[in-house]
Computed example of a mutant assay.
Amino acid sequence: MRKKIYLASFSLLILILIGGVFYSLPYYVSKPGMAKELKPIIKVENGYPEKGNFMLTTVRMGRANIYSYLGAKLSKYDEIYPLDEILYKKETEKEYTVRQLYLMSGSKMNAIDVAYHKAGKPVHYKYKGIYVLNVLPGMPAYGKLQAGDRVFKVDGRTFPSSEKFISYVAKKHAGDQITLTYSRNKQTKNVKLNVAKFKEDPSKVGVGISLVDDKEIIVSPHVVVKTDEIGGPSAGFMFSLEIYNQLTKEDLTKGYQIAGTGTISDDGTIGPIGGIEQKIIAANKAGAQIFFAPNEKGSKHSNYRDALKAGNEINTKMKIIPVDSFNEAVRYLEKLPKNSKKMVK
């Protein structure tokens, strides 16, 4: 009898422990990720070689279960975020992932734009339609369109921008029907939707999608940036350095391992990101010798100051450099003496 009770208790305990892995808490946990060399990711056609490396840095972000939550509580450099700090209102996890992938796509485009303009190369854009970020529950598009769809025609017509698309739909009346032509998983489909009033603002009508421009950047020489499933905009600045370095004869790495982080706008401004302390740890583990951190114009609570603090706490030997713009980073690298030491891996 005792043996049966023991086995039943043990089995229940095992089920509880396994259940703890799959039961999601209303939090996200982020941890130090990795520092990844950009040469294998970015290829400019007939690009110049480099002796050192530029590296992007990442954090690992995921929905918390009981164990990851407790682990984060005990770890100094793990961060816990309430669900509403990560997801937009009514945004699903799938839509969050699509949004992050779009932000990565936008950061790549800005990085290419900045690097090619700096190198004196022509840049052109081709508008492809609109990209669906999320679909509002209770609106006509809900259950018919989904995040990641690319809409390129309305009633058989194409538009030169998302603003023109919105303007066209806004002129309709509640109950009017429109036909959207869109692509999903490389297949083209049509869907008919009745325009409806927005509950939050009945004076406006639409089909209930959050959207952005879907456009392609066209440059010569050709460049490929392979990011797979890496999301978010924080690698944009480092992308721009790697692309520019392959476009120009002078090697800006000069034999150094150079990591960093920051968003990049199309005018070359470097913006702040989350998880800077975790990225310092990732870069340090990868043997980076220099780390670029967004300076935020010298703000007291800038990424740079947080990076300095984390660097001091882990006794890193990396030089942590504050930067506000792409041009500022390039000037720093141009003045940098060549690395006389053997490259650290």
Rank of each mutant, 00 (worst) to 15 (best):
121 K>F: 00
68 S>T: 15
81 Y>M: 11
70 L>M: 06
112 I>D: 04
78 D>V: 11
73 K>C: 04
102 Y>L: 12
102 Y>R: 10
100 Q>P: 03
109 M>L: 12
105 S>A: 13
69 Y>S: 07
91 E>Q: 13
115 A>R: 11
117 H>Q: 14
71 G>S: 11
71 G>D: 14
71 G>E: 14
122 P>V: 04
94 K>W: 13
71 G>M: 11
91 E>P: 06
118 K>I: 01
120 G>K: 07
89 K>G: 00
114 V>T: 11
117 H>S: 12
115 A>W: 03
82 P>T: 11
110 N>G: 09
79 E>D: 13
67 Y>I: 13
83 L>V: 01
105 S>E: 15
112 I>N: 07
123 V>G: 08
92 T>S: 12
71 G>P: 07
104 M>W: 02
121 K>W: 00
101 L>V: 08
112 I>S: 06
106 G>D: 15
109 M>F: 01
92 T>H: 03
82 P>C: 05
118 K>L: 10
101 L>M: 15
88 Y>M: 09
79 E>Q: 14
86 I>L: 10
98 V>T: 15
93 E>P: 01
86 I>N: 07
113 D>V: 01
89 K>E: 10
87 L>G: 05
104 M>F: 02
102 Y>N: 13
115 A>K: 12
120 G>L: 06
118 K>M: 14
83 L>E: 05
122 P>I: 05
88 Y>S: 10
101 L>I: 13
77 Y>N: 15
74 L>M: 09
123 V>T: 04
90 K>E: 13
87 L>W: 05
71 G>Y: 00
67 Y>S: 13
84 D>C: 03
107 S>M: 07
108 K>W: 00
112 I>Q: 06
70 L>H: 00
121 K>C: 01
116 Y>V: 08
92 T>N: 02
108 K>N: 06
69 Y>H: 04
121 K>P: 00
96 Y>P: 03
80 I>K: 03
78 D>I: 08
82 P>Q: 04
92 T>V: 01
106 G>A: 15
67 Y>L: 12
77 Y>W: 03
101 L>K: 14
104 M>A: 11
106 G>Q: 15
85 E>T: 09
77 Y>D: 15
88 Y>L: 12
95 E>K: 11
86 I>F: 09
71 G>F: 00
67 Y>E: 11
110 N>W: 02
89 K>D: 06
97 T>F: 11
95 E>I: 08
113 D>T: 10
74 L>V: 12
115 A>P: 03
